[in-house]
Design a protein around this nucleic acid. Structure first.
Length: 134
DNA sequence: GCATTGACGAAGG
DNA sequence: CCCTTCGCCAATG
């Protein structure tokens, strides 16, 4: 069941359109991956922020869903830098080990307390603000 | 093809 | 302030 993604030469369509054509050439996943990979070390963002950046803020779940498929993706996806709006490690259960996510964050000087990122607001990285559409 | 599920989020009680 | 409900939309049973 190895489903390989077709490489997208470039995003011809708008993010919104891409998001609505998941089953087509361009996948919503790739957009998500690209954003996630650009999250600076030591910073985090939320599913909703990514969704918002992609023009589908009402579909944050799709972002989370996309991450679910990001496990075996070649260029490693720093999924540990993506949490829900509360800064909670909602996806830690999906990592290799339940503690892996927290460990990875810790390595980047991100403190985690009770599955919640401390000072989440401070290290929050909003792609819509910080990232320019290339 | 309908019903349920989700690594979410906002709104309402 | 905590809990429940609803919306979003693709995937899965």
């Amino acid at each position: 069941m190895k489903k390989e993604f077709k490489k997208t030469p470039s995003a011809k369509k708008t993010p919104v359109e891409s998001a609505r054509s998941l089953t087509k050439e361009y996948t919503f996943f790739e957009n998500v991956y690209q954003v996630v990979r650009q999250i600076p070390k030591g910073r985090v963002t939320s599913y909703g922020a990514i969704a918002n950046y992609l023009g589908a803020k009402l579909s944050a779940r799709m972002v989370g869903w996309a991450m679910n498929a990001a496990h075996g993706v070649k260029p490693r996806i720093p999924a540990h830098r993506v949490v829900n709006r509360n800064g909670m490690l909602s996806g830690k259960a999906h990592f290799a080990t339940p503690t892996l996510m927290e460990e990875l964050l810790k390595k980047e000087n991100i403190l985690v307390k009770n599955d919640v990122i401390t000072d989440f607001k401070k290290i929050f990285w909003d792609p819509a603000k910080e990232l320019e559409i290339s």
